[in-house]
């Protein structure tokens, strides 16, 4: 019934603060609609103003409640807040129940807040493939702060560190012993660590374990800096860092400790700008994004270059042990690119 508006109209409306147009454009971006690319290209010059803050952590640690409390506090300072909350898509049905708004009802009725729920739609890094683009739309729409809440993340959903200027990792008491704290992954990406639900038993153990982990981590980071090669290249610059990760205790349901988190966010932002690290992060973010987009575009072209029957036949040969997967891929790439990069089959 509602006419689909041309992207030009939609973009002008979004830049002019039309919330309905903003919601519509986000849908088109999320769906990878053909005209969304053009819209994003035209919005690009308007981006780069927002502070992008990632909030990640295991399921049930209180990420949504913390986001709600942080957004309220930011609003009290007069800053506008866009929120992108990602929840997982079912790998079986492709459907999703997105429940983060349940914890964010305090923000209802505030024109300075815009909340959008996103399903991960098959992405495994804790975000959806289009989350970065949706953040960009909110940035262009003029929100001063964009809070990105990841899916309940475990040990390897670290994409958020490449997207956000500041990454907050939320932990809660009783989720694991101090060996969990020294494993690789999500704790390593924290710029700020929050131990939420500190009214629960065992909270001080969690705080202690995290502080001990950070002390170990600092020495390793320095060793990595001089020894080189200890960390994979894409996150290398994140590790070369004079920032001291604070551990902050909160009870988000009661808004306890939120002012401390806000102060830490401000300190981190000042640190990023003061040291010039913000430029490093931006360069790194763009590089990671370009690589991801290249991967997606090349895969699509490669798949389009092959007859589905060829793929099915290749799968059959690998299953029958006539061919191994690595050689099969080399042959498929060589056939599509004609560059002789694979040895003759």
């Amino acid at each position: 019934m509602t006419p689909v508006r041309a992207p030009a109209d939609l973009i002008a409306a979004v830049l002019g603060g039309d919330r309905r147009a903003l919601a519509r454009l986000i849908t088109r971006v999320e769906n990878r609609a053909p005209d969304a690319l053009e819209a994003l290209a035209r919005l690009h010059p308007h981006t780069g103003q927002a502070a992008i803050i990632g909030v990640t952590g295991a399921p049930g640690t209180g990420k949504s409640t913390l986001v709600n409390a942080l957004a309220l506090a930011l609003r009290q300072r007069g800053q506008t807040v866009g929120i992108v909350a990602v929840d997982p898509t079912s790998p079986f049905s492709g459907g999703a129940v997105l429940g983060d708004r349940v914890r964010m009802t305090d923000l209802a009725g505030d024109g300075g807040v815009f909340i959008r729920s996103m399903a991960s739609r098959g992405s495994l890094g804790g975000l959806a493939a289009a989350t970065g683009d949706v953040v960009r739309v909110l940035d262009a729409a003029g929100f001063a702060i964009v809070l990105v809440e990841t899916v309940g993340a475990g040990q390897s959903e670290v994409d958020i560190a490449r997207m956000a200027h500041t990454t907050v990792v939320v932990d809660a008491p009783g989720l694991g012993d101090d060996v969990q704290a020294i494993k690789a992954g999500i704790l390593e990406i924290a710029d700020i660590l929050v131990v939420n639900k500190t009214d629960r038993p065992g909270a001080q153990n969690t705080v202690r374990a995290l502080r001990a982990m950070l002390e170990l981590g600092h020495r390793l980071r320095n060793a990595g800096h001089h020894g080189a090669g200890l960390l994979p290249a894409p996150l290398e610059a994140l590790a070369v860092d004079s920032w001291t990760v604070p551990v902050i205790e909160t009870i988000a349901t009661e808004h306890t400790g939120i002012a401390d988190v806000l102060a830490a966010l401000d300190r981190h932002r000042a640190h990023l700008h003061g040291t010039g690290e913000i430029a490093d992060r931006e360069r790194q973010r763009v590089e990671a994004e370009l690589l991801a987009r290249l991967r997606e575009a090349l895969l699509a072209r490669l798949l389009a270059a092959h007859d589905p029957a060829t793929l099915a036949e290749t799968v059959r040969r690998v299953v029958a042990r006539e061919l191994d997967p690595a050689s099969a891929v080399q042959a498929l790439v060589a056939a599509a690119c004609g560059d002789g990069s694979a040895p003759p089959a």
């Binding site: 898509t89 049905s93 459907g95």
Partner: peptide, 15 residues
Amino acid sequence: ARALRDAGMEVIYTG
């Protein structure tokens, strides 16, 4: 909400 999810829809549950 669960049934619509199982039918492949994205369900925003507000409580």
